[in-house]
Every structure is written in C-alpha cells, then in structure tokens.
Nucleic acid binder design. Structure first.
Lengths: 226, 226
DNA sequence: TCCATACTTCGACGATAACCGAAGCATACA
DNA sequence: TGTATGCTTCGGTTATCGTCGAAGTATGGA
C-alpha cells in the first residue's frame, strides 16, 4: 500500500531527458517506430531500444509489433494526463515565460493532447458542450446527456463503438496552458478525428500545433454556438 | 514552451527513493524538520540536506526557517495532487494488490491527502456537499453556493480568512484509491482541521490513516446527511 | 562564555545508468 | 537465396549522483 517505491520508479522513468523527449513526442498521439523515436530524441537505435524497453516495462508505453517495426504509443490516457500535469507544474515553477513567440501562441490556441483537442479551442469546445447541455457534470464525472447523444449521432460520431472501448467516454483533462479542463476520453478522441476528417483542422507534422482552416473555424464556431 | 527539459527535471527529483519517501511523508500535511525527514527516510543529515535543497530549488518543497530548525512542507496543492496522481498510476500499473490488510483498508477508508480528507470518507463528503447543493460544478471549477456559504459559517468555518489565502478555496483532487474526486483547496483543509478540533477524527501518528471516533462518525454522518 | 543541537560544506567512494561501437538476430523484398 | 532494413544484445567507457565521514557554521540555552 505504501506507494513510495513505485512513485520513485515512475519518477526515474520520467527523469531522463531522452525519455522525456520521447514521451513528449508521443503526446502527438501517433504511434511511432523505435527508429523514429531514436531520431527524434537524438540518440542511436541501441540507446533508444533500452529506453523504450524500460518505459514499456514501467507501463508508460504500449507496444504494437508490425512486421519488422515496433510502434510505440503512450500506454493510456492516464499517462497522457500525467504528462500534461507535469508540464503544467513545471511551467508554474519555472520563471514565467513572458515572451510568447508565434509558435507558442499557436500551441496555446490549439494543440493535440495525446489524441484530443487541447488549448484555448479545446476549452471552448468543452465549455460549449456544457452550455448546450450536451455534457453535464455528474459528481466528479462528465457524462453525455440524451440531448448530447443525439447531437453526436447527427454529427457522425459512432457512439456504440465508443461505448465498447475500454477507456471512459468522457474524461476531463487539465489543460496546462489554460489551467482549465478540456474534453478527453474516447469521445474527445472521436471528435478530434472527426474534425480532421472534415478538414476543419490540420496537424502540423513537427509539433503538437493544430491549425484551423478558415472554413473549419467558421463551421466549428457555428456548430458549437461560439 | 517545449516543456521537455522541465518534466525531466521534476521527474528526476521524484525518481530517487529517498526523496520519494520524504515526499510521501510530507503528504501527511505537517511540516517537518530536516532531521525528522532524514530519520524518516533513513539517511544521515548531510544526505537529507542535499535532497531537501534540491527539492526546494525544484519548487516541490516550501521552506520555513524557525530558529535553528528548518521546516519543510510540500510547496502547494499542485505538488500534492501530482503525488496522488503518481500513486494512482503506479497502483494501476503494478500487479493489483489483492491482499488488503487492515492497514490498507483503513487507508482506503480515510486518510489525509496533504492536509484534507481523502479516501472513501473524503468522497462521501465531497458527494454529500454536492447533493445538498452546498457545492456545485461551474464548468470545471467547484464553487461554494450561497447555501453552502451559510452552512460553512454555521459549522464554524471562517470563510473570510479562507478567501484571503492564495490557494483556491475549492479544488477537486483525484483520489488514488477510489479514482473519484474529493475536496481539496483551502476549504478542504479547513474542514479537516474542524473535524480534528471537534475530535471527530484523530490522525494516526505514523501513517496517513485517519480514525473516526464512534461519536465522530455518527455526527459526521448526520451533519452531511449520510 | 561554553556546550549542545541543527544544519551545511567538502571530499572521497561506489553504484548506477546513459551512451555508443560492433556484432547479431529477424523480417521484408527482390 | 541474398541483401537491405529495423531492432537487439554485449562490452566497455564515461558521467552523474547518492552516500557518508569529518569538519565547519549558526542558533538556543545554561
């Protein structure tokens, strides 16, 4: 029951720069191969192998083998949430960055958090869903209302398959740039996927930034009453 | 804006067994001196000094000097929340502990989380406050209603002084044993203090366990409609 | 003033772990 | 079957960091 050794173990996993860089990269939400992660982190393949094995054993990463490739992704939403929390905490601890370059403001506006929408746009979405009574708080939980279910179906989200998934459908995730909650969970992921499919948004290949097209932004706003 | 090096830095701080033990100890909520922490962690004073200095520099600990003593406490609620999150994650990752000894079940029932009530009793309290409409969710925030303010004053909580404190009055904190939210923030702390003052509960000196007296449990239940 | 206590600094030792070169295994494709 | 590609294992080097003994500074009390 004494969780001490465990928190040290996870802490140690997070405490190496190379591993931290890999984890941050995986916050994009995409699964990446060992060599991609090696390149991203700036180490050789051997070194990456060792790091990835440790993180998988530690429960931080999930692994999918595909032919001669090994695809790694964050193990689950909890891990993603932990990383966001850590970033939030370290952002608060560090001397506040006053200079916010163009990339920073883009990150604050909209980015992927593991696989769902975060940043200012993520919060707008979250709040709009609540204002329109599509979502409501039930104690600490976030649940989809009947009205909300109806809307999601109309919008082209397959709720049945989401319900089947093991991760909870609605989860709130603390946004590190805004310090407010945005929508995570399988519904959050499905909405993000839908936005991409509709070409409302496009991911920037190299960062977590999400770009809204002009049309996308218009339709996003009108759909959610913003 | 790239939070990578920072998360590694915090991770490294958490990644040492001795430091993790110290942090866990401080989850009791009390501030402890350097030598107490040294003893608790099983290291010499020199070693403790070095660890404590690092954690203070890293923003995890707050320091108060008092004569020749140095009192250390967790820097803020965010740090406490991070630790609870980590414990929850590592509990989920580890092979599930099926054996729940008496101490375990006591921990699950009621314990201090930094300085407020956690565990099953903490969740009961949180839920009761919401059921009775003393607290309500406002978007992601938890706020005290007028009815709630009234109740708290009656109950002997000095809301004015809480409002003056820098930490938010209501915060929800994820409970690692129950995976539900309980009440943190300055109000959570004040309630906990009140329970102790009323002798409803007593802290176990050596663990985070909180024991309800028979009378305390009765009055707790009737006060919050349980 | 003198001593006890609490904490810190310094230096040295030892363990751990990150890193890469070299070689090895496994899969895919021609 | 041969060759390229992706990943792994092994061995050795290097750097970092936790640890404590010894000595030093600061505070409180007799």
């Amino acid at each position: 029951m004494d969780g001490t050794p465990n928190i040290a173990k996870i802490g140690a996993l997070l405490g190496d720069n190379t591993r931290a860089r890999m984890l941050s990269t995986l916050m994009h939400g995409k699964a990446l191969t060992a060599s991609e992660l090696a390149r991203e982190a700036g180490v050789t393949a051997q070194t990456a192998t060792s790091h990835l094995a440790k993180m998988e054993a530690g429960g931080l990463l999930a692994l999918r083998k595909q032919g001669r490739h090994k695809y790694f992704a964050l193990a689950n939403d909890d891990v993603a949430a932990l990383l966001e929390t850590l970033m939030g905490l370290s952002a608060g601890v560090e001397p506040i960055r006053i200079t916010t370059g163009p990339r920073d403001s883009a990150m604050r506006n909209a980015r992927v958090c593991y696989n769902h929408l975060a940043g200012n746009k993520g919060i707008q979405l979250h709040d709009a869903l609540i204002t329109k009574r599509y979502l409501k708080h039930n104690d600490a939980e976030l649940v989809l209302t009947r009205k909300g279910s109806h809307f999601m179906q109309e919008f082209g989200i397959d709720l049945d398959s989401l319900q089947a998934s093991r991760t909870p459908m609605c989860r709130s995730c603390l946004d590190w740039s805004e310090r407010r909650s945005h929508l995570a969970g399988s519904l959050g992921r499905a909405l993000m996927a839908k936005f991409e499919q509709l070409r409302w948004v496009k991911r920037d290949g190299n960062s977590r930034v999400i770009k809204f097209s002009a049309k996308g932004e218009r339709e996003f706003n009108s759909t959610f009453g913003l």
